[in-house]
Simulated assay, not measured.
Amino acid sequence: MKNDIGPYRIYVLLVVAGLISAEIIWSWKKDKGAYHVKETVSNLAVFAGFQFSKYLFAGYQLSMLVFFAGLAPFRLPQSGWVFLLTFITADFIYYWFHRASHLWKPLWAFHMVHHSAMRMNLTAAYRLNWFSALVSPLFFIPAALLGMPPDFIVISYSLNLAYQFLLHTEAVGRLGSVEKVMDTPSSHRVHHGSNPIYIDKNFGGVLIIWDRLFGTYQPETEKVVYGLTTGFLSHNPFMLVLQGFIDWFKPAGSKSPIVTSPPLLDISPEK
């Protein structure tokens, strides 16, 4: 098994590196300023910590789902139709998990790091909290109790996150009728906007139909201003990951030590 997985991971990393390189070239040629040296390095540092955390918490995540699957009154067979059902169910659960992560402060503590990026590019997709694996399995317990195979749940959630990597870019414009059903880069740019019209919109992972059904859909109508509403946070990966928890435990009324954002247009690589 290890011999099969190893090359697969290398191929995935090569594809990811190729897409990021292509986006950097596009940004440079079009003078889009989508990349900034310090922010990109911090994105990759956060990603490295997240990759380590995946190995650290993998056993906990799977054992949690296996335990509750054992409590299910019935078990669905491992078939193509069941996988499709599991994938759609996982996407529906992800919508509510993501929405709750914006509206409930304890969950926002985990999610804040992802929205702290001041620029939208493929490396920003990897600003993921190192401890998010502690809470994410809890939201997928209902799928396990409905008899869906735990490995199908894990694969569905992994594919959901993998798809979202492609959404973090300004290189792709509007996609017409596709945006009525699927989450797209345009819809996800809206989600990352700190513009008042964009806050708490477009929570979908793969499908955008949940946002349309539950009143959280917003099309991209004005230039997106990225980052937290409080401005620039830090380039320190530990600060990025931990600041949400620090803010969570602060006494009511105390101010966050978030500094003022640098000028948004000053996004050239530092000399």
Rank of each mutant, 00 (worst) to 15 (best):
S136V: 02
L207N: 08
N202K: 11
V66Q: 15
F249D: 00
G215F: 02
G6P: 11
A252R: 03
K201V: 09
V37Y: 10
A124V: 01
A109I: 01
A171H: 02
R189Q: 03
I155Y: 14
R75P: 15
V206E: 03
W108R: 00
L134C: 03
T123S: 05
W26E: 08
V206N: 04
H188R: 08
L107M: 14
A45P: 05
F203P: 05
G33K: 02
P137I: 00
F203D: 12
F139W: 15
L56C: 13
V224C: 07
G6H: 09
I209L: 07
I93N: 14
T89A: 12
G18E: 10
D4K: 15
L175M: 05
V66C: 14
D247P: 05
D211Y: 00
A17I: 08
R75Q: 15
F214M: 06
F87E: 02
L14H: 00
I93Q: 04
F47E: 01
K255P: 13
D151K: 12
S254K: 01
H188S: 12
L122F: 10
T260S: 15
V181P: 07
Y60H: 11
D247C: 04
V225I: 14
A90Y: 14
W130Y: 03
W108V: 00
P257V: 11
F47Y: 10
I20M: 13
I199R: 13
L19N: 03
S256P: 14
A69Y: 09
A109S: 01
H111D: 01
G244P: 03
F249T: 02
A48L: 12
L71N: 14
E222V: 01
Y157D: 08
S156P: 14
A48G: 13
L175G: 01
V37Q: 13
N160S: 12
F214N: 00
W26Y: 11
G215W: 07
F165E: 04
K223S: 06
P150I: 06
A100V: 10
V15T: 02
V46I: 05
H114I: 07
K223H: 04
F67A: 13
Y8G: 04
V224G: 14
G18S: 12
W96V: 14
F249W: 06
Y198W: 10
I258W: 01
A125D: 08
Q164R: 05
F67T: 04
S186K: 00
Q243V: 01
T123Y: 07
L145H: 01
D266Y: 12
G70W: 04
F97A: 09
H192N: 07
L19S: 01
V135G: 13
Y35Q: 15
A58T: 06
V37E: 11
F131I: 13
S53N: 05
Y60V: 11
R174C: 02
G176V: 00
